[in-house]
Design a protein around this nucleic acid. Sequence first.
DNA 1: CACTTGACCTGTCCGC
DNA 2: TGCGGACAGGTCAAGT
Length: 288
Amino acid sequence: MPELPEVETVRRGLERLVVGRRITAVDVFEAKSFPVGPGLLPPAGVVGARIVAARRRAKVLILDLDNEYSLVGHLKMTGQLVVRGPEDWGAGHPTDSLLGELPDRSTRIDFRLDADSHLFFNDQRKFGWVKAIPTPMVEQLPFIASLGPEPLDAAGFPEFQRRAARHRRTTVKAVLLNQQVVSGIGNIYADESLWAVRVNPARPLAEVSDRKLRQLFQAASDVMTLSIELGGSTDRNYVDAEGNRGAYLGFANVFRRQGQPCHRCGTAIVKTKVAGRGTHYCPRCQRR
DNA sequence: CACTTGACCTGTCCGC
DNA sequence: TGCGGACAGGTCAAGT
């Protein structure tokens, strides 16, 4: 469930904790978590390189190295990138940690760093991955090059509108989840954004006015900006680079709130299935 | 081409 | 208490 706010929170932690560190060794415990193949550097190839930048595109994390390669990572649903060092190391200590000693049984990769520290890639369900790719190739990877604009970029609205226009018959929720149309939104923030502008998730896009669509894009930006300030959403697994939970779900209006009163009208929030996903909405505020 | 469904995985929860 | 099955959801391949 890491969506844009969670990935951005991890990115900020990595920028603070591992940029400037050198990779001294890499232990891969689950081969599929660090795929190798044409154009990909095997794990041993990053040993000796220094991490020089931590970037993000939508839900994709990018750690640039000083050897012309970048570590590109996707956390998918249960991935974590957690930094650990000596006990007295670093300014931030976990205050709401979800994790114990690392590595644990979900640890797939251990990047050993200088200064006696580690960057652990944990992933209970093994859907996530980390790949080493030539830095100039990162933006050209098909799945990155085809991403739609991010809601945090207000100037991206016309492009979002243009791309969305090709999907007028599908539900507005499915469109929000389509990373080629608009990127960075996942199940949590799709539901939260739709509640904010009182649009029913199952509405065909054709029934959503241009004005509503603009409000929706803005709402997605607002809700994700707030979530970043709160360190993201922790439903089950998500933690930041220090192992801490995010606090956004305490402020959620619909996600995982089925049966509880709508914060606007008091009606019980309903959970259904739209676009093959669990979907939460207020049946009164968000009529079809 | 637009759109939906299934697969990838494992841990958790629910009903029997 | 144990056990089968549903469920969780990001993305892509395969299906309609």
